[in-house]
Design a protein around this nucleic acid. Structure first.
Length: 585
DNA sequence: GCCGTTTTCGGCCCGACTGTTTTCAGTCG
């Protein structure tokens, strides 16, 4: 398959989604619109070698992608462009897509604004609002004009999504303030946070109470509300001062389980479940599950909903319509339940941490003390290698000096096994950063890419493959190099490299830094199929950074992994044996 | 546009809140 085009899967999924939105503004059938958006998601969730799939002419084998979308995808992969795409893009000015990002503006209103006033950009729309041109349009008024101005303002101030720790602190604040409101029996965070998504758009607070008014009062009196967007009897929505949308939903206690399921989502997962209910002549909504006669079935817990639909209970993290429903069906038929997903207290130790020896903020002794305080039984430091000059990479002499310090520390921390590793840059030609005899003296090697991100997919893949095949490589560090909300990862043939890692016994890192969470959870199923071992490593640059393993654990749960698939859930002796095995001279 | 123990047509999930409306369309999750 030719690789002359540089269009990867990520760009194609974005294109399909955009085309859906363009069709929406252009007034296409809502079902056609949904087909594009669904197709985009189906492709995003599908893991494998897209080049291969296109070569085999099998694109429409992906559920949700039919002949039409398959042909667009094939054209994009093979030529970098598609005639159908060009035709759709010609329907409306591209810049109208930006208007959709303004809260309160949907496709119909954007279209009306464009057709009546020929407004194409956010700047022009802002000007029109200030000149009071919008309020005269049919279906608009003075209030809509003001809310559009507010929406534009918010859009400019906030990027839209947040990293998990930032979202957590906002969520905890709002949860705390409704929890003690009068009449509250239960309160939980639902939505993408409960599903452990890698970034969070909105926070969903779900509260069970027969006194919704008291809950609303408590919610709206939470500290740090920038703006109230809606306040109804059972539903309110605000923007926090951090720029996060926070939704409150109050539900009667008897409906808490179906509501928790409903507001946990994902939307796609919910749609599938509601369809499943419909197939039986039933109805599923946030208030409960209803039979043909319209009688509520008993669903005191989430698992009751699943079981009544002949499904095993599905952990919230897995509810992405990513094959979990089919799996739950099988488990239910076999009277089995899901394997227990990994928990943070099962982590026994970590590799891949930094210290002041390279670019860390804490000394090695401080890091070791913190690791000991975490109750771990092994700890590996892996500072940067010599080529990483930007990060104070260690020379061969410094590595030797560091070992002396480690030997001293070992005496002070007899209960903690302290390992000396290195995070070796994978050089441009795929070799590691020290001579083999230096690498062999270390306890382990994390091989990571830190430079030349823009190599072609083919070259980047070959580069990393060479590093993974090096006998000293123990761990493949942050496999894609992505930084969430900052940059995409480098282009690689992930499926191929995972196979290489499996062949070589290399541990695939799940980098737990909340900005990385790399490897992406969407590879979870493939990783399990290949029988790969995953290591959850904090990539800590400070003592506080060690606590980031919790985010790695969240991502591992989202991958569907249990402790037996995580190397650093092993007891010390087994673990030391394991990292020796893939670090042979 | 996608899909099919309704298989090539006729469906396609569901409900709250808002604003501009006199009964509802649009937006959102």
């Amino acid at each position: 398959m030719s690789e002359k085009s540089s269009i990867g899967k990520a760009e194609i999924t974005r294109t399909l989604e955009q085309l859906g939105h363009i069709l929406e503004i252009a007034g296409s059938s809502p079902f056609k619109v949904r087909a594009f958006v669904n197709g985009s998601r189906a492709l995003e969730n599908w893991q494998g070698d897209l080049f291969q799939l296109v070569g085999d002419g099998n694109v429409s084998s992906i559920q949700g992608i039919g002949k039409g979308l398959a042909s667009i995808i094939e054209d994009l992969v093979q030529d970098g462009q598609s005639e159908a795409e060009t035709e759709i893009r010609a329907l409306i000015p591209e810049s109208l897509l930006q208007l959709l990002r303004i809260a309160g503006l949907g496709p119909k209103k954007v279209r009306a604004i464009y057709e009546k006033l020929e407004i194409e950009t956010i700047d022009d729309l802002e000007k029109a609002c200030k000149e009071e041109l919008i309020q005269s349009l049919p279906g608009f008024g003075k209030t809509s004009e003001n809310s559009i101005l507010k929406g534009i303002n918010n859009l400019r101030r906030f990027s839209g999504r947040s990293l998990i720790p930032n979202a957590q602190s906002v969520a905890e604040r709002f949860l705390a303030s409704v929890k003690d409101a009068q009449g509250v029996t239960q309160a939980e965070i639902a939505g993408s946070m409960r599903r452990n998504r890698e970034t969070i758009g909105d926070i969903d607070v779900l509260v069970a109470s027969l006194e919704p008014e008291a809950v609303r009062q408590a919610f709206l009196s939470t500290e740090g509300i920038k703006e109230v967007l809606a306040e109804g009897e059972t539903k309110s929505r605000v923007i926090s001062e951090e720029g996060m949308g926070v939704d409150l939903r109050v539900i009667e206690p008897k409906s808490f389980a179906p509501a928790l399921h409903y507001f946990t989502g994902s939307k796609e997962h919910n749609t599938r479940l509601r369809q499943r209910a419909r197939d039986r002549g039933w109805k599923l909504n946030e208030y409960g599950l209803w039979n043909e006669a319209g009688e509520a079935l008993s669903t005191p817990e989430e698992k009751d909903i699943f079981n009544l639909l002949d499904l095993a209970w599905i952990p919230p993290e897995l509810r992405e319509d990513n094959g979990e429903i089919e799996w739950a069906e099988k488990l239910f038929a076999e009277k089995k339940s899901w394997n227990e997903l990994v928990t943070a207290d099962q982590i026994q130790g970590v590799l891949h941490c930094h210290s002041t020896w390279s670019d860390g903020k804490a000394t090695l002794q401080e890091m070791v003390q913190a690791a000991s305080d975490m109750g771990w039984s092994y700890y590996g430091t892996a500072d940067h290698s010599r080529t990483a000059a930007y990060a104070g990479g260690l020379s061969i002499e410094q590595l030797a000096e560091q070992l002396l310090e480690i030997q001293k520390l070992r005496k002070g921390f007899p209960q903690l096994t302290i390992l000396q590793g290195i995070e070796s840059d994978i050089l441009q030609d795929g070799s590691l950063d020290y001579p083999d005899e230096v690498l062999e003296r270390l306890d382990y090697v994390v091989a990571s890419v830190h430079s030349s991100f823009s190599m072609s997919r083919k070259d980047q893949t070959a580069r990393i493959e060479k590093a993974l095949r090096h006998p000293c490589t123990t761990v493949w560090g942050h496999p894609t190099g992505r930084l969430l909300l900052q940059r995409d990862g480098y282009e690689i043939d992930m499926d191929h490299l995972l196979k290489v890692a499996a062949e070589e016994g290399v541990i695939v890192e799940l980098n737990a830094h909340p900005r990385r969470l790399d490897v992406d959870w969407r590879w979870g199923r493939r990783i399990q199929e290949l029988g790969l071992d995953v290591g959850i490593h904090p990539d800590a640059h400070s003592t506080h950074g060690l606590k980031d393993v919790q985010y790695g654990v969240m991502a591992a749960r989202k991958m569907g992994l249990s402790s037996t698939q995580i190397t650093n859930c092993m007891e010390r002796d087994e673990y030391l044996e394991r990292i020796k095995r893939c670090h042979q001279s």
